[in-house]
């Protein structure tokens, strides 16, 4: 079996990934601060104002990042991967993948780019970004992107969830989803690298993965 470095991620995907990493990191940190201001500020620095400002900027980055990612999934010249996210096919493949990860089976099928669990969880990430964006919009006071009036345009979100208190809870739980996701995501990439020895971990920086192929 020969191994060869194969380009897995184009520069676009790499930038997209790290932009989202920064956005989620900033959102989580500032989100914690807005929820419970753990650093005392003063009039000289307007700490809360800056935290909120960063939170809103990072929120724009996260939302626009998702838009860009969806566009890339369909129109990327390097690898338009929207077919990898087929929900039904991925659900059908769960027993195979889960069996491998829970040590019931010794191997799993060859998946093109994403493991079925991975593809489904990425879809969840997209959904949670949407949830966070809509609940965030319902809590925001201003014009989103300069023309969507908040919170007026998102009153239905508040009504659906049963008041602003509940909206805040959903918003904060979406952050906890990201925290849990990042934990698993980083662990899985390290573990995959160690087991498969295919440079998965560094591929998101270099763009290259080791691929096996039989001659």
């Amino acid at each position: 079996m020969a191994q060869k470095l194969t380009k897995t991620w184009s520069l676009g995907y790499i930038i997209e990934h790290w932009t989202r990493v920064i956005a989620i990191a900033v959102l989580t940190f500032t989100g914690f601060y807005i929820h419970w201001p753990f650093i005392a500020g003063g009039l000289e620095c307007l700490l809360m104002s800056w935290m909120r400002f960063l939170h809103f900027v990072a929120a724009y980055v996260l939302i626009l990042g998702l838009v860009v990612r969806v566009y890339m999934a369909f129109r990327s010249t390097f690898d338009a991967d929207w077919k990898d996210f087929g929900i039904i096919r991925n659900i059908k493949n769960i027993p195979d993948s889960l069996g491998y990860h829970l040590f019931i089976k010794g191997s799993h099928k060859d998946y093109r780019k994403y493991d079925p669990l991975q593809a489904l969880i990425y879809l969840c990430v997209a959904a949670v970004i949407v949830v966070a964006a809509f609940t965030g919009g319902a809590l925001y006071q201003g014009n989103i992107f300069g023309f969507i009036q908040a919170p007026d345009s998102f009153l239905w979100v508040t009504a659906l969830l049963g008041g602003e208190s509940a909206t805040r809870l959903v918003h904060i739980l979406s952050m906890w989803f990201f925290i849990v996701f990042v934990l698993i995501h980083v662990y899985m990439s390290i573990m995959t690298t160690m087991v498969n020895k295919d440079k998965t971990l560094t591929s998101i920086l270099t763009g290259y993965k080791l691929k096996k192929f039989s001659k």
Partner: peptide, 16 residues
């Protein structure tokens, strides 16, 4: 909400 989140994160860490 934070308790729920912390428990979920701890459970994840334990699972990992």
């Amino acid at each position: 909400a934070d308790k729920i989140g912390a428990i979920a994160a701890a459970a994840t860490a334990a699972g990992i």
